[in-house]
């Protein structure tokens, strides 16, 4: 074996399945597909009166990286609005080397993905779905 993309922290995030499932009465919902690999993410959100996320759930038909990213995102999404989610996305992009700077938690766990450009979209797909749901 030459590298360790699937480090314990990423596997643990995926297995945690934080937020996995559906919301009974979402305020908004969005689905994003990656046409290259077929991964699919559906995100449901319930928003409070100030437009902040009160509840979030996701259904991922995709790889472990996509599952881990959706799980990590769900773990920090509640209480944030669209601008707040963009700050989280910056952490994810820093972790995979798309942006300069040190990534905050929990997305620092995704640093091993940096060397695998073909997998960057796997990490970002849940953000794309959530962005659409919040738009």
């Amino acid at each position: 074996m030459t590298d360790q993309l699937y480090q314990d922290r990423i596997v643990a995030l995926a297995k945690a399945k934080t937020g996995a499932g559906k919301l009974a009465t979402p305020t908004k919902s969005a689905r994003r597909d990656n046409p290259l690999c077929g991964d699919r993410v559906v995100v449901d959100v319930k928003l409070d009166e100030g437009g902040k996320i009160a509840e979030i759930a996701h259904q991922v038909r995709g790889c472990l990286l996509c599952q881990a990213s959706a799980s990590a995102l769900a773990s920090v999404a509640v209480g944030r609005d669209a601008a707040g989610i963009e700050k989280v996305r910056l952490d994810a992009e820093r972790a995979i080397g798309r942006e300069e700077g040190e990534a905050g938690e929990p997305f620092a766990a995704f640093a091993p993905v940096k060397a695998h450009k073909s997998r960057h979209e796997c990490v970002l797909l849940p953000f794309e779905a959530l962005k659409e749901a919040l738009s």
């Binding site: 074996m1 030459t2 590298d3 360790q4 993309l5 699937y6 690999c37 991964d39 995709g62 790889c63 472990l64 990286l65 599952q67 695998h116 997998r119 796997c122």
Partner: peptide, 12 residues
Amino acid sequence: HPHDVAQTLDSF
């Protein structure tokens, strides 16, 4: 997931 199988195989 098949992509994770393939990625693991690449490391071999």
